[in-house]
Design a protein around this nucleic acid. Structure first.
Length: 478
RNA sequence: CGGGGUGUGGCUCAGUUUGGUAGAGCACUUGGUUUGGGACCAAGGGGCCGCAGGUUCGAAUCCUGUCACCCCGACCA
């Protein structure tokens, strides 16, 4: 640990969490910096994570009736400006295109920061009757927001995401879809990313520009900070009215449809890193790990060693994502590499093992080493992958559960926010002034008003002492 | 946009205070020996010292300007 190589490797989490994060994304070769500030390069290891997130989530979407489309990259300024709150919310961070083909454009266009306006412009033309509803469209794309401060995956100027945009006949239908998609997100994080979240509603201060309600899933990183990991918005008929979207209802009268949107981004990769990672690097949940099993041959030049490794890959573990690392590196290097990249299981096979008809199986999450008969691998490994997946969730769940505190008065609140990494549950009167005050005093923000576990702690607002309306989960956020 | 930091082979940096022939480790190439926790030996290739001006006989080093990136804040997914 004391030689130069280790020092240059990964900074310890406890020493400097931010630096640890930067080290991991670089050393695990998830991304690289580009020549454009805030625009990152997704390297194969990072993009593969996104591909797996996409394919699982896309399947979950389609099971609920979602259809994919692709919308343009550019939004004319006039279109962006149709909804007042929306343009006010996004104007400060959009990038503008003012020239094309060497000539100044008649009207400047922004690079989409989100596509509500484009979808509205489309829906205006294709929704005429209640029979045209609902419309449940989604697109996988990138968007641009000209952030001042950027961090890999967590906040980049261009990021990849999916944005779903739906139109419904009634407010209830829209509300149902908003909640439904929030649940799709929460289930996906829980079952596939092994990340527990808290579901709830955003306060007016934190909700999306133009929405009547924003729902969120909030995850807790290893350092106790919150990461908003997916959002779902109910727009009511605000945009529909602003864009003149009307259809003839069952009553033969004109109505405005009700709208939702929901999105989840490559920021989630940041969550994966910060929820599960350790001082050796990434720890990936088996469901989305691009390589689930890394086979490391020992003395691979010896006859038969590589043959057995490939037999394990093709025969015993067919159907799993297996890699045989037959590079010329030393075994020790390969071990360190596998741990840095977070592959859930490593299998070591050398002459000694072959003689005994066994191999060494190493869990990335617990670093536990287990001797397993080669003949039992076929049964053992798939079930171990599920065990790891579940254990990782339980570990993260445990961390979340033990890092939520409760404050009854403001002194206690400030102390907890300051001293204890994690979230604090406290009552709130509903006034934005108190949110602002709390933020000024502690840098903590309201994360959400949770759907579950929201029984009142007291009847007074933690900040101003007036009658409390909601239980709110507070925390410092990314 | 405020505060801090850094720009020198692909990477991490030394050299700048006190101007005088561009260095180290890692990585890379070739050959050999190795292989159960980041192997070793030998030989090799690779740099307008971010950019532009200035001072000087002479600038990586001093001066002025400029650009970029990173980190920490305020805003956001």
């Amino acid at each position: 640990m004391k030689d130069k190589k280790m020092v240059e490797s990964i900074t310890s989490m406890d020493e400097d969490f931010a630096q640890w994060y930067t080290d991991v994304v670089k050393k695990a070769e998830l991304m690289d910096y580009s020549s454009v500030k805030g625009c990152m390069i997704f390297l194969p290891a990072g993009y593969a994570l996104w591909e797996n997130i996409q394919s699982i989530l896309d399947k979950r979407f389609k099971e609920t009736g979602v259809e994919n489309v692709y919308m343009p990259l550019f939004i004319p300024e006039s279109l962006l400006q149709k909804e007042k709150d929306h343009v006010e919310g996004f104007a400060p961070e959009v990038a503008w295109v003012t020239e094309g083909g060497g000539e100044k454009l008649e009207e400047r266009m922004c690079v989409r920061p989100t596509s509500e306006t484009l979808f509205c412009d489309l829906y205006k033309n294709i929704i005429h009757s209640y029979r045209d509803l609902p419309k449940i469209f989604n697109q996988w794309c990138s968007v641009v927001r000209w952030e001042k401060t950027t961090r890999p995956f967590l906040r980049s100027r261009e990021f990849l995401w999916q944005e779903g945009h739906t139109m419904h006949e009634t407010l209830e239908d829209a509300e149902d879809r908003t909640v439904q998609m929030l649940n799709v997100y929460a289930d996906f994080l829980k079952e596939d990313l092994a990340i527990p979240t808290i579901k709830g509603r955003k306060t007016d201060k934190e909700k999306f520009a133009g929405a009547i309600a924003t729902y969120t899933i909030e995850a807790m990183m290893h350092d106790g900070k919150a990461l908003q990991s997916g959002t779902s918005h109910n727009f009511g008929d605000g945009f529909a009215k602003a864009f003149g979207i009307e259809y003839t209802g069952r009553d033969n009268k004109l109505h405005n449809p009700f709208q939702t949107s929901w999105g989840l981004s490559t920021r989630l990769i940041g969550a994966l890193i910060m929820v599960h990672g350790d001082d050796r690097g990434l720890v990936l949940p088996p469901h989305i790990a691009p390589t689930q099993v890394d086979v490391v041959p020992i003395q691979q030049q010896k006859e038969g060693v590589l043959d057995i490794c490939h037999k394990v890959e093709k025969e015993y573990l067919s159907g799993l994502r297996v890699k045989v690392d037959d590079s010329e590196r030393s075994p020790g290097f390969k071990f360190a590499e596998q741990e840095m990249r977070g592959f859930p299981i490593r299998i070591e096979i050398g002459p000694r093992d072959i003689e005994n008809g066994e191999c060494i199986v190493v869990r990335r999450d617990s670093l536990e080493k287990i001797t397993v008969k080669l003949s039992e691998l076929k049964e053992y490994i798939p079930s171990l992958l599920e065990t790891i997946q579940n254990d990782m969730y339980e570990r993260a769940r445990d961390h979340l559960d033990h890092s939520i505190y409760e404050a009854k008065d403001y002194e206690e609140f400030k102390h907890l926010i300051d001293e204890k990494p994690g979230f604090v549950r406290a009552m709130w009167c509903g006034d934005v002034e108190c949110e602002d005050q709390i933020k000024a005093d502690t840098t903590a923000t309201s994360r959400c008003m949770p759907f579950e576990g929201n029984e009142p702690i007291s009847d007074k607002c933690i900040c101003c002492g007036k009658a409390a309306k909601h239980l709110v989960i507070w925390g410092k956020a990314y």
